[in-house]
């Protein structure tokens, strides 16, 4: 099939950027979306143009590196990562708009590549359990009810891709933050730091210039790992409890 792409091209952080139209011919429906971009890039290179820069690595939907907004939807029409989206989700002759994640907290580095360092800094603020190597008791010293372990796992499947931010009308990073708060907060090992953790992480989230959550739910709807929206409510419960019990803002 033949596809018309309108791709965001931006040379560097400070460049203004614009949508540029390309034709991609002989696209196989079995290609992944990124393989279709590979084909475009091969052609651009041979024609002496610069290929389109985009982040990607594992190409099996787990590393969280890839992610572009396709026709206005983060990761495109299927609820999965961009690398797991295949061209059979499109039709011959389609016009496809491809844009980077857009948020102040995720500045564009080049073309479709953005800087998601803000997510790492949110984790630095408290998204961990302090357990220096060698200090651990036996793994069976503390049983964890299966329901809690499962809920922690569901939240822990977050791949940090940033689609939640890209999709949110407020550009909020609350689903990402909440997933980590819930993962660690559901486990007995995470209890000692639970109250302080949520406050520190939400503070960092706000400092990074993410917007606030207004419970619209676009984040959970595009999340490739299906992190549910009630994770944010869990964060809110922890946050209010923590503030009420006198943890500093």
């Amino acid at each position: 099939m033949n596809i018309t792409l309108r791709v965001w091209r931006q040379k560097s952080r400070d460049d203004e950027g614009r949508m540029v139209t390309y034709q991609v011919e002989d696209v196989s429906p079995d290609m992944s979306f990124l393989e279709m971009l590979d084909v475009l890039n091969e052609k651009l290179t041979l024609d002496g143009h610069e290929p389109v820069a985009f982040d990607h690595d594992c190409r099996e939907g787990i590393c969280g590196a890839c992610g572009v907004v396709i026709n206005g939807v983060a990761h495109g029409p299927e609820t999965t990562t961009t690398c797991q989206l295949h061209m059979r989700s499109f039709k011959d002759g389609d016009v496809i708009d491809v844009e980077p994640w857009r948020a102040k907290a995720f500045p564009v580095i080049k073309d479709l590549v953005v800087d998601r360092g803000a997510f790492d800094r949110i984790i630095q603020a408290g998204g961990y359990i302090s357990a220096p190597t060698g200090t651990a008791p036996d793994a069976h010293a503390m049983p964890v009810p299966k329901a809690d372990a499962d809920r922690a796992f569901d939240a822990a499947t977050c791949i940090g891709c940033g689609a939640c931010v890209a999709a949110c009308p407020n550009a909020s990073g609350m689903l990402f933050t909440a997933a980590k708060v819930t993962h660690l907060g559901m486990l007995p090992q995470g209890q000692p730091e639970r109250a302080a953790r949520v406050v520190k992480m939400v503070n960092q989230h706000d400092e990074e210039d993410f917007g606030g959550c207004t419970n619209i739910g676009e984040c959970a709807a595009v999340c490739p790992k299906g992190i549910p929206l009630d994770t944010i409510s869990q964060l809110n419960r922890d946050l209010l409890g923590s503030l009420a019990s006198g943890n500093p803002k």
């Binding site: 200090t135 036996d138 049983p143 090992q189």
Partner: peptide, 22 residues
Amino acid sequence: VEIIDQCVAQGVPFAREYGGLL
């Protein structure tokens, strides 16, 4: 043996049985 202890202490959500054990 120590790796599993370390990871559990860090909050790695390994699969568990209904009794709460790994």
